[in-house]
């Protein structure tokens, strides 16, 4: 039984490798040999994890993965607990359907990060691709809980159909929070186009500028009490750069999407 398990990439990956088997909670029950025998997927061929990674440690739910992992997909899929630290970047679907534990990525993440996530923490120091925290294809609900904290930007359709939980990022692409049911999207910068279309009860908060969608209507300029709470909580737990002027600031509130039930909001920071 080790303090941590460390997986070190043996040779650079040249094409996508499916790594849904890498999940911290699962590693807690496995010996080094058993971990090495887990299946990674190269197309339809299965490759032993031990052939791709050098493994140190066993029986631990703390896992470090080292190497250029931009082609490594599905890490932490359906993870329920434990902790994965990824020293560099990682591929698509990281933390998909995860319900607990923490995945911390020092670099960037690919598309579908935290897709259909239900709980836990996905922290990305770099940027993330499209559909972070969004729904599985054809599903009516996106993430239903947990937190996705991206210090860089995220791509399109971030938090689309989100049901609960929080997504924080420095900037977003188009279509953030489309058809949100509830939950929070907090953007430290400007809000991209098409944000919040079809939003039912979700909150989209932008510290930068907002191009207000035509299906939102201005309500008032005020100090939303829940914003202080949210920002303080994020600042305390994730050491995010959120200023007091944002915590206690004045925000313009826009209600929408009025084509739907209209109980959602876009909050745009104005001033202290």
């Amino acid at each position: 039984m080790s303090e941590r398990i460390t997986l070190t990439l043996r040779a650079a990956l040249i094409r996508p490798l499916g790594a849904e088997c890498i999940s911290a909670d699962r590693f807690a029950d496995l010996s080094e040999q058993e971990i090495g025998a887990l299946e990674l997927w190269d197309g339809h061929a299965s490759v032993a994890l031990g052939d791709v990674f050098a493994i140190r440690g066993d029986h631990s739910s703390s896992v470090t993965i080292e190497g250029d992992l931009a082609h490594l997909d599905g890490v932490g899929t359906a993870m329920r607990g434990g902790e994965i630290a990824i020293a560099g970047s990682v591929g698509g679907g990281v933390g998909a359907r995860m319900s607990g534990g923490a995945i911390r990525i020092a670099g960037n993440a690919g598309d579908d990060a935290g897709i259909a996530m239900a709980g836990g923490l996905l922290a990305i120091a770099g940027s993330a691709g499209d559909r972070a925290g969004a729904a599985l294809p054809g599903a009516s609900k996106g993430m239903t809980g947990g937190e996705i904290i991206v210090r860089g930007g995220v791509g399109r359709d971030a938090g689309s159909r989100m049901r609960r939980g929080t997504l924080f990022c420095a900037s977003v692409g188009e279509g953030a929070g489309t058809a949100m049911i509830a939950g929070n999207i907090i953007v430290a910068g400007d809000l991209g186009d098409g944000a919040g279309l079809g939003n039912k009860r979700g909150s989209i908060l932008a510290l930068g500028n907002v191009r207000v969608p035509p299906t939102y209507a201005y309500a008032c300029t005020y100090r939303p009490p829940h914003v202080s709470l949210m920002l303080l909580s994020l600042r305390a737990r994730h050491e995010l750069l959120v200023n007091d002027e944002h915590v206690h600031g004045l925000y313009q509130r826009y209600s929408g999407d009025l084509a739907d039930i209209g109980k959602g909001e876009i909050l745009e920071w104005r001033s202290m």
Binding site: R164, T166, N184, S203, C220, Y222, R223, P224, P225, H226, L229, M230, S233, R237
Partner: peptide, 17 residues
């Protein structure tokens, strides 16, 4: 709103919320 696992209610009032 659920923040940090805790649920809060936001009631609109004349002053704000």
């Amino acid at each position: 709103k659920v923040i940090d696992g805790v649920r809060y209610w936001r009631l609109p009032v004349m002053e704000g919320e």
